[in-house]
Amino acid sequence: MKESQQKTTDFGYKTVAREEKASMVADVFHSVAAKYDIMNDLMSFGIHRLWKRQAIACSGVRKGHRVLDLAGGTGDLTAKFSQLVGDTGQVILGDINDSMLKVGRDKLRDLGLVSNIEYVQMNAEALPFPDNSIDVITIAFGLRNVTDKDAALRSMYRILKPGGRLLILEFSKTDSEALSKIYDFYSFNLLPTMGKLVANDSESYRYLAESIRMHPDQETLKSMMEDAGFEQTSYQNMTGGIVALHRGFKY
């Protein structure tokens, strides 16, 4: 049965009513927004910066492009895209969570990046843009928090210009058994403790670990992109498949 026809959905390992998930995810991010960047660096040992670099290299963003950095959080990708698109382009930092948007806006302003960035609070399932209006969409570590992923992918496809591309950077499934065991121990034991110590919030980081396990694997996500209409879909695994970068085009 299609995701959009079900009445319940996952929230980590829990099953909750579909209409509740967005607000529960929002609570998680309201709670972690202030310490989001420092926790990202701590949790990934800084490797998240390399994953994001790879996404930017594959984005094909050029001067004059209109880019949507969806679930852009604190604006790591937006900062780079803003420089790549130049004065004639535009980057839209979109997030469903206003706390994250505020942190992102403050950070980017402090970096002196103001002229070509717009901040829009939006739901990925119903993007507030006209058809064929965006050159590149990126969603980094955000798709797993979306309630109806199929609807979100269809919405992204709708607003992309023909020739445009979608990049999804997301935690995925590793095929190495040894790495998987270490990763599980780290995620369910160390991660919540770090969350407790640094952000005083172990539950949010437990949700993070659980939501990663509930997210579709590489092949499933690729076929979901194809179902939404994307062509030439492909993915590349990073750090043994802990993270995967999916790419699809609209023609």
Binding site: R53, Q54, I56, A57, C58, G60, K80, Q83, L84, G86
Partner: peptide, 19 residues
């Protein structure tokens, strides 16, 4: 490898497959 100057800083990428 791809090198570009954005007017503020350099950006250098590996595995570059774009035009």
């Amino acid at each position: 490898f791809a090198l570009t100057y954005t007017g503020k800083s350099f950006m250098l990428f590996n595995n570059y497959q774009e035009q």
